[in-house]
Structures are given as structure tokens and as C-alpha cells.
Design a protein around this nucleic acid. Structure first.
Lengths: 131, 131
DNA sequence: CAGCTTTGATTGACATAGTTATCATCTCTG
DNA sequence: CAGAGATGATAACTATGTCAATCAAAGCTG
């Protein structure tokens, strides 16, 4: 594990968000990078770089990824920074008051999630707050 | 184009749907390539090439073009050959108005996350609980 | 007519997307 | 333990997106 956490350098957070989303979805589907590469006709190396936010994939690549992961294109596009509207909600919701429950606990306690989904979500969260 | 009497427009047709669409919209708005270049921060040279189908613009360029021409992103995307590849039947199922918002709230209230990261995490979570 | 401006198009250089081949590490077998 | 397979990461390379500079043609103005 490369412990590359500090970052804040070349890539934007949006690209990183897209990569984290793709990685989480791929792991949820129990696909390796090479399996997904075979399905998408995109090289495993490049998929690895996209997932870690090193590159910004083109429309063509984005679509084949969505296709392989059985996601709606809109989901991927919004993750790619195409916030179609309403990025206003977050600030208003911040007044919810910080409870004593951490985000990790909330994820673990969420009955809607399967074990795999829980793991994937916690992985993304950890990659964000890692330090 | 030297010999092309570009006024009457019989040109090689549907191969270049996106470029033709952009050019038509630009002329409809009475913009020159340079004016549009100034608005989009994309060079006039490249815009010319995109309009003639010589290159396939990136997401960033596509969005700034849509912005300058006051088009919806969906309009441009569908012209770019993005006709909703995955035939997701569950587009409408989003309206499940469950009151279980604890995990969402925890993510929104987590001070360790940036706005982009928050959006990404919420996107993953949403994709999990709606599928 | 000469000169100025604006138009779309082209060229050559550079930046970024994307590939092939290879690497280190981990996990199985035997 | 050795070796086979799979996994994710990296290096070196090729293809393509993108820009600054420039061009020829068309529209003005005096």
C-alpha cells in the first residue's frame, strides 16, 4: 500500500471522487482490474490510473465503464464533475448538528447495506480521511 | 476551406453530428469562432476542428461549449453519441421516500470531508441503497 | 485601388489520454 | 520451502487533444 495520502497536488478532488466511485463499484461487483479491462476494452493499467485519479477518462471510456458496471451513465457523469444542478443542498444540510455517531458507525449500522457494500463504502471513506 | 461555398451546406452528412450541431448553434447565436473561444477558454483553432469533426472534444471542452451556447448538457451529450447506452429500467425508482437518512446525515455532517468527497460518498451510498 | 479588420482554416509544438510490457506482492497449491 | 497465478502499480511508449502563431479570403472605409 503506497500510503500516498497527502496528495493535494496535481489532480483535482473531482477526479479523485470519480476514481473512488469507480473503484468501489468495481469491487462491489467482485471484478479485478483485468476482468474489467476485458469487459471495457480499456487496459487494466489505465483503469488503475483512472481509479486513483491520475487521469480523466474520455467519454468513450466512461461509457464503457458504466456499461461494464451496469451503472447509469448519469451516475458516472455526475461523479465526473457534471453536477447537473443543485450543488446547493450540502450547505443547508450542514446544520443538522454533529451527533456523537461517526460516519463510520453510521455506515456500519445502516441496515440497507450488505456486507460487501459496507466494506466498499468504508473503503472509500477511509481513503478520503486517511492521514 | 478553399473551394467550399459554405453557405448552402451540403456536407458529408451524419458522420459529424456533434460538430455540425455545435456549428449550427453557434451561428444561430451569431457568434464567431473567436468570440466563442473567448467565452469557452478554448482556442478558436480547436473549436474549428471540433466543428468540422476532426477531433473529439473532452468532457471539459464539451461542457464549456454547452455553457457558452446555453445548451443543456444533455443536448450536447446526445449529439455526441451518448444516447443512454445502458437501458436502465430503474430510472424512476428513485422516489422511495424512506425516512432512513442517518447515514446520509452522518456523511453530510462529517467535517473531515470536502464538498467533493461528500458528493462522491453520497453518490456511492445512493447507488447502493437504490439498487 | 491600398490598407485595416474580421472571418474560418492550417501548421507545428506541447500536454494529456491510453497501451503494452513488466514489476512486486500476496495467495494459493504441492 | 518453491513455483504457479492472480492482483494492483509502474515505466516507457504511442495516439490524440489542445494551443499559439499564422495564413488566405472576404468585408469594409477612405
Amino acid at each position: 500500500m503506497s500510503t500516498e495520502g497527502n496528495g493535494s497536488g496535481r489532480w483535482s478532488a473531482q477526479v479523485n471522487a470519480l476514481g473512488g466511485f469507480i473503484r468501489a463499484q468495481r469491487q462491489l461487483a467482485n471484478l479485478s482490474l483485468r476482468e474489467m479491462a476485458a469487459m471495457t476494452s480499456v487496459s487494466n493499467a489505465y483503469l488503475s490510473q483512472v481509479e486513483r485519479g491520475l487521469h480523466q477518462p474520455s467519454l468513450k471510456v466512461l461509457r464503457s465503464i458504466a456499461d461494464a458496471l451496469q451503472l447509469s451513465t448519469d451516475q458516472l457523469l455526475s461523479q465526473a464533475g457534471w453536477a447537473r444542478a443543485t450543488e446547493t443542498a450540502e450547505d443547508a444540510a450542514s446544520a443538522a448538528g454533529s451527533s456523537t455517531v461517526t460516519t463510520e458507525d453510521a455506515i456500519r449500522a445502516d441496515p440497507r447495506l450488505s456486507a460487501d457494500q459496507r466494506t466498499a463504502l468504508l473503503g472509500v471513506l477511509r481513503s478520503f480521511v486517511e492521514g
